[in-house]
Design a protein around this nucleic acid. Structure first.
Lengths: 228, 228
DNA sequence: AAAATTTAATGATATTTGTCATTTCATTCA
DNA sequence: TGAATGAAATGACAAATATCATTAAATTTT
């Protein structure tokens, strides 16, 4: 089994502040797993007893509303870490994590993490930084959801998706989402999302190439996302 | 100046895990301040160099949207702590904190907090727990804002306000907000909020007694908040 | 206490967004 | 390959929400 001290993920997040020894401790107890497209890595309400390091693949973090609708809160890709929040707060997982494509993931048991938190205050601080940053993002998102019209939120989301997943070799946003998933990200009806996408295409702001989306006029999207 | 080890606030939050000695260190450098109604304790985008302990009073945490609208993210009252997120992430403050009534606040400098984090891993863990919990709340709020209609959000907000601020001796929710502030909490136009409140009154679910709101039928509100 | 100002309430109307029905297109799989 | 399924697109319409205008009530100021 591969040694955590060589994993690329250690260059990101809080993990990067760990010593070689600490990483090797992680290696000893870690397990690797494959999550197939459509499968859940975590499920809302369940307990979790470790941290997930995403080596590869893309996923969505969602919440099921009381009215039965799925809200996508965030997109995650290789290099990211999942499960910190739940481990640290000792609460059940708050979000579902569903693979958008096959994923390779490492699992590090909770005990190792908590031990390292106690021993390495820098690791601890970095984890906090991480979650603090996420909290700020979430607050911003609350504000946008509450006050921006659907068109603005769609524009914002498209920019955000390109930011996270980058472009493929045709210049399209490098992730495949259904229209329903896009709608569930911006919090609207699927038909509304489809209509607005069509309008953006008609206006030459984006292009729709089969299931992929290509941003043609980034500035126009930026303006739209701010209501202009 | 009063000794932090006697402050009631220490019974809440992460502060409660501190030793008497640690609290006394806080006492030495802390400063007390009074924030008048309408004044800001923190301002979005500004740096912060310490932690605020709210002794007394109520305030709102808001975000100014790019379209110039104020979104209220959270309400805070005596016993709560403010500024952790910004200190820990080393980022500017993300939210405005505006007093809804006169407040008494203690300020503890960043240095003391960071030192204590390094020395007391339990304190550190509790801070993380706190922020992790807030992150979960924020994610839930995103989902609600994105997917629930305004009426549901109003019902939810009224229940939430009573939960936080309790009742005065007439059984009304013990906080005075303008209709605009209520609208800015649920993310709608002021007129819409007013109309929905009037409807709730007409249906006997709440009563409007001058500026105060009294919940008459809590169950009805609970049902409404879930779309029934 | 009266005037001035702000906040709340209400009506009329426009705009946005959601829902339902139908068609077109793409994908799966037998 | 072609039937079957699911996703995307579009139209027609309904419902929700915002905006603007006006009036009424409450609060502050003089």
């Amino acid at each position: 089994m591969a040694d955590c001290s060589h994993c690329i993920i250690k260059s990101f997040n809080a993990i990067k502040t760990l010593t070689k020894e600490e990483l090797q401790k992680f290696s000893e107890h870690k397990t690797s797993l494959i999550i197939r497209k459509g499968e859940n890595l975590m499920t809302e309400g369940n307990a979790i007893n470790g941290l997930y390091c995403i080596k590869d693949g893309k996923c969505k973090l969602t919440k099921l509303n009381t009215n039965g609708k799925e809200q996508i809160i965030k997109f995650i890709k290789g290099g990211d870490i999942l499960g910190q929040r739940s481990i640290l707060s000792d609460e059940p997982v708050g979000l579902n994590c569903t693979a958008l494509e096959d994923m390779r993931v490492c699992f590090i048991p909770k005990g190792d993490i908590l031990e390292t938190i106690k021993e390495n205050s820098q690791f601890s601080l970095n984890l906090m930084k991480n979650i603090s940053h996420q909290l700020n993002e979430a607050n911003t998102l609350v504000s946008q959801m509450a006050q921006k019209p659907v068109k603005d939120r769609l524009a914002e989301t498209l920019l955000n998706l390109e930011e996270i997943f980058g472009q493929d070799n045709e210049g399209c946003i490098d992730v495949i989402l259904t229209r329903e998933e896009i709608a569930n990200t911006i919090g609207t009806a699927t038909e509304s999302a489809i209509r607005l996408l069509s309008n953006l295409k008609k206006d030459g702001v984006i292009d729709l190439i089969s299931k992929k989306i290509k941003i043609i006029n980034k500035n126009a999207l930026k303006n739209l996302s701010q209501g202009y």
